[in-house]
Every structure is written in C-alpha cells, then in structure tokens.
Amino acid sequence: MITMLAIALAAADAEGIRRLLHTAVVTVVDSGGATGDAPTGVLHGPDAAAAALQHSAVSAAVTTASVNAAPGIVIRHQGRITAVVCANTRAGQIVELWIIRNPEKLRRWDRS
C-alpha cells in the first residue's frame, strides 16, 4: 500500500492517492509550528489527506523507506528530507496517516 502511495505521490496523481485512502481517513500533520502555507494538525477525510500529501511532495523526490520498523515514505527537496510519511491500513485502504514535517524531528533523518 505504501509503495502504491509513493508511486501516486511521485506522479502527482491526485485521484490515485485518493483511491488508496479510506473515506474516513485521519491524517496527523506534525509541522512543529513551521507550517508556512501547509496544512497542519489533525485532518479528516481523503480530500484533506490527499491535499496535505501533495503539498508535501511538490517538486520532490519520493522514496520508500523503513519508518519505525514499518514501510514508510521519505520526501526530499534538493536532497534534504522535508517530510516522512507513515500509515496504517485496514481492508486494503489507508485509514491513518502521519506526515512528519517538523524540522527538529527531521534533523535525525537528514544525518542518516
């Protein structure tokens, strides 16, 4: 499921992203207060989740990686990690998403 999400994100395929999301998906965006114009906080529904994901991946390199010992996505802008995404799935759809954009938390990722 994460691989399909990464492919859809890399292709900027909004409909492909939405198809993977449950209608009641809950997304938590941790920006650490550094939001700019990005969505932040707890978001509900596939449209909000897709928008937050796409905002994080504009003009970015999208790859899969192990995140907390589970499949996840790493998003890089100009070689620098700007977001890490993890998800919970149920019955073939993503029901929970976490988008980590908090610069303090991402510093550890940029060192590895």
Rank of each mutant, 00 (worst) to 15 (best):
I7Y: 00
R80V: 15
L53R: 15
A65N: 13
V85Q: 05
W109V: 15
L106E: 03
G16K: 06
R19L: 08
I17N: 01
I7W: 00
A12L: 09
S112K: 13
V84I: 10
V25N: 12
I73D: 10
L43K: 04
A14C: 04
D37P: 02
A48I: 09
V84F: 02
R108F: 02
R18V: 10
M4L: 11
Q93G: 07
L9K: 13
L5P: 07
A11F: 03
I73A: 06
R111L: 15
V74N: 07
C86A: 05
I2L: 13
E104V: 12
R76W: 06
H55I: 05
H55M: 15
G32K: 08
G79C: 06
I99W: 00
A83P: 12
I73S: 04
A57N: 03
A8L: 15
W109A: 07
R101W: 01
I17L: 13
T23I: 12
E15A: 11
E96K: 14
A57W: 01
P46I: 05
T63K: 10
A24K: 15
V28Q: 07
A14K: 08
V84R: 02
A48W: 00
G16M: 09
V28P: 00
R80T: 12
A70G: 13
G41T: 03
H22P: 03
I99T: 05
D37C: 01
A50K: 01
A12I: 14
